[in-house]
């Protein structure tokens, strides 16, 4: 055809417009679960792992037949087998049921610390951002708390309060509140200057309603991401505290104190440390994946993708 056209160009002979390829073929957006997984594999994996861990923690009584505290002197330091799935520790306790029950501690500490520090930090941050004279006082206090590394602060508080799960939660919350307060204060200060807040004032909106309708919803996206990171970091701090013996009491199995129990033997019996460590890492990873997808999803400009 091209050779033909390059010839003398006979009169009345025109090249037909070539069929153009469809530049943008219609996209069939896959719906349902399969579509969701295809569009956002990260958050799907995160949610799946997290749901599995939560299921494990809730159903711990049914998932393990052996009492996690039962000592069995004749079956110490066994390798993983059909009878002991994850092996046993140096006191002959079944590691599988300890790890399963340990999920409860991690999840409760993680979720409660995230919730409490978000609520407290939100209140402190809102005060700082809205009641200007409290700002310098509150923020200096927050700076003071933040100047101490959270793990060190939690260890100090645990040394004062004694080991119990409530105290672990209180200590980690205390250390995490300033991070939330800082973030909320910054967001509030920038939102206050936005034209839509001034527009709401001229539209006769009262200050409580401005906070509720205009400030708070726009704080939630950055805050929810921070909350998930706090949840993950609280789990790690709890594990560290339990590992060094400053966390949950030894009678309550937690991933941190299981690892502590296996520490002395880890070169010969690495599985004692390995299993709780894998579960802790997976849980933290899952929460971070969920946090990232939450951030994308809560931003209306992203159109619900991510």
């Amino acid at each position: 055809m091209a050779a033909h056209m390059s010839g003398a160009g006979h009169e009345g002979e025109f090249a037909a417009a070539p069929e153009l390829p469809a530049i943008l073929p219609p996209v069939n957006r896959r719906r349902g679960l399969a579509g969701l997984i295809a569009r956002s594999p990260g958050s799907s994996i995160g949610v799946a792992i997290l749901l599995a861990i939560v299921f494990m923690a809730v159903m711990a009584d049914y998932l393990s037949a052996i009492d996690p505290a039962r000592l069995s002197p004749i079956a110490r330091n066994r390798d993983p087998s059909l009878q002991y799935w994850f092996g046993t520790d140096m006191l002959g306790r079944d590691l599988y049921s300890r790890v399963v029950y340990g999920a409860r501690v991690s999840l409760i500490v993680g979720f409660l610390v995230a919730l409490l520090s978000t609520v407290l930090g939100l209140i402190v941050g809102m005060f700082s951002g809205f009641v200007r004279w409290t700002d310098s006082i509150l923020m200096r206090v927050m700076d003071g708390i933040m100047s101490i590394p959270p793990i060190l602060l939690a260890i100090a508080l645990m040394a004062l309060a004694g080991s119990s799960m409530t105290n672990v939660i209180a200590a980690i919350t205390f250390a995490e509140v300033p991070r939330v307060a800082r973030l909320v204060r910054g967001v509030v200060l920038s939102l206050r200057e936005q034209a839509f807040v001034e527009g709401a004032i001229t539209a006769g909106t009262t200050t409580p309603m401005i906070i509720w309708r205009h400030i708070l919803p726009n704080t939630l996206a950055p805050l929810s991401v921070q909350t998930t990171y706090i949840c993950a970091s609280a789990m790690i701090i709890e594990a560290v505290l339990s590992f060094i013996g400053a966390g949950t009491p030894p009678s309550v199995p937690s991933w941190g104190n299981i690892m502590a129990d296996g520490r002395a033997l880890w070169q010969v019996k690495p599985h004692i440390v390995f299993f709780p460590a894998v579960f802790l890492s997976l849980t933290v990873l899952a929460i971070n994946l969920v946090g990232d997808s939450l951030r994308d999803r809560l931003d209306p400009r992203m159109g619900g993708k991510g």
Partner: peptide
């Protein structure tokens, strides 16, 4: 006395639907 701002991007709350943005003064007053 009401206002129309310069920047059409920062003058509307990104988390409110247009219906609610327009209804806000009607509700308030």
């Amino acid at each position: 006395f009401q206002v129309i701002f310069q920047d059409p991007f920062s003058s509307l709350n990104p988390r409110m639907r247009v219906r609610d943005i327009v209804a806000e003064p009607i509700r308030n007053f």
